[in-house]
């Protein structure tokens, strides 16, 4: 949930996550904009359970997503218009 008081958000942008359009503002991270949209589950752990932002400073790697084809930490990735995000649901390959 965005804090309104005392904050001027940057210009509005739209990016997509697994094909769904999500609104954000320049200056926000993908992880934060997704949280504001009520989107907490960003990934699956190896056992299949959902994972979201945890350390939110780029260490724990729980929030990694594919952003325009590259693995990125959602908590550190700035939103921009037209960014294409896909979530990763990786399980053992064999």
């Amino acid at each position: 949930m965005r804090i309104a008081a005392g904050v001027e958000r940057g210009p509005a942008v739209t990016f997509s996550v697994d094909g769904v359009a999500v609104a954000g503002h320049i200056g926000e991270t993908v992880g934060a904009a997704l949280l504001a949209a009520g989107w907490r589950d960003l990934r699956s752990g190896p056992g299949g359970g959902g994972r979201g932002m945890f350390c939110a400073i780029g260490v724990c790697q729980e929030c990694v997503v594919m952003a325009d084809g590259v693995v990125r930490e959602a908590c550190r990735l700035p939103v921009r218009d037209g960014l294409v995000i896909t979530t990763r649901r990786l399980r053992d390959v064999r």
Partner: peptide, 8 residues
Amino acid sequence: PGVMGLAG
């Protein structure tokens, strides 16, 4: 998801 560190 939704469990987060205090620092985070």
